[in-house]
């Protein structure tokens, strides 16, 4: 305090600063080490689980194909092997299912659209040869329990999508014309959620349908 130039202070401060740095640095290094170890240890099972979830969903919407390929959307075209330098995780992906005899069964496509509460994410199977859907599965939604979440749980509603022609047309349950394959009966009381699912599929098909059609044509040629 009596030292106006503060000459007594710097030395102490130096000591303290170095100690601060070493403490933080040491702890930081230790923390980093611990995290990396745990990351290495957990990552395989996390990745495996994610892959498994994806595989199951694709199996479900493509009716148990024997195998499937991952295709990447690059410049409006689907490619199995995007050029090097492109980050695969950032490209939109669709999955092409195959039968054992080599024939393709259809594409599994993910779609998302804002629903009643938050974004609804789903995956659906699409057969470009017939222009019909194969199946639909909701992956993630925060819709109202007991009402909007029927899009996950109501098997009648989910069943509507099997073999439905696109673009889909949502109608009130029991009020549609007989024999129209594009009709989907919406869930009573959960019209918004039902519509979101239908809109998500319609918009995705409108965007990716021609691309998938083109890819399927090229593949068969």
């Amino acid at each position: 305090m009596t030292d106006p130039a503060g000459t007594g202070q710097p030395a102490a401060a130096d000591v303290r600063t170095s100690r601060l740095v070493t403490t933080l640095g040491g702890l930081g290094a230790l923390a980093g080490l611990l995290i990396v170890v745990v990351f290495r240890w957990t990552q395989p099972s996390i990745q495996a689980h994610k892959a498994e979830v994806l595989r199951q969903a694709i199996n479900e919407v493509l009716k148990e194909p024997d195998s499937y390929d991952t295709l990447y959307l690059v410049d409006g075209k689907l490619e199995t092997e995007p050029a090097a330098g492109l980050d695969r995780t950032k490209l939109e992906q669709v999955y092409l299912g195959h039968r054992g005899n080599g024939g393709s069964v259809g594409f599994a496509v993910a779609a998302a659209e804002p629903g009643f509460q938050d974004v609804i994410r789903l995956i659906f199977g699409y057969d470009p040869k017939t222009g019909h859907l194969m199946a639909m599965k909701v992956l993630e939604s925060k819709e109202t329990p007991g009402l909007g979440d029927k899009i996950l749980k109501d098997s009648a509603f989910i069943g509507e999508f099997e073999g439905a022609a696109v673009p889909l047309n949502g109608v009130k349950r029991g009020s549609g014309k007989a024999g129209d394959a594009s009709q989907v009966d919406m869930i009573t009381g959960a019209t918004i959620s039902s519509r979101t699912v239908i809109r998500a599929i319609n918009q995705t098909i409108a965007r990716l349908g021609p691309i998938m059609d083109a890819y399927a044509r090229n593949a068969t040629q």
């Binding site: 923390a31 611990l34 995290i35 745990v38 990351f39 957990t42 990552q43 996390i46 689980h49």
Partner: peptide
């Protein structure tokens, strides 16, 4: 650090 560990472990 502990939270990161807990998070990863729980996910696995």
């Amino acid at each position: 650090t502990f939270v990161t560990v807990a998070d990863m472990t729980l996910e696995a």
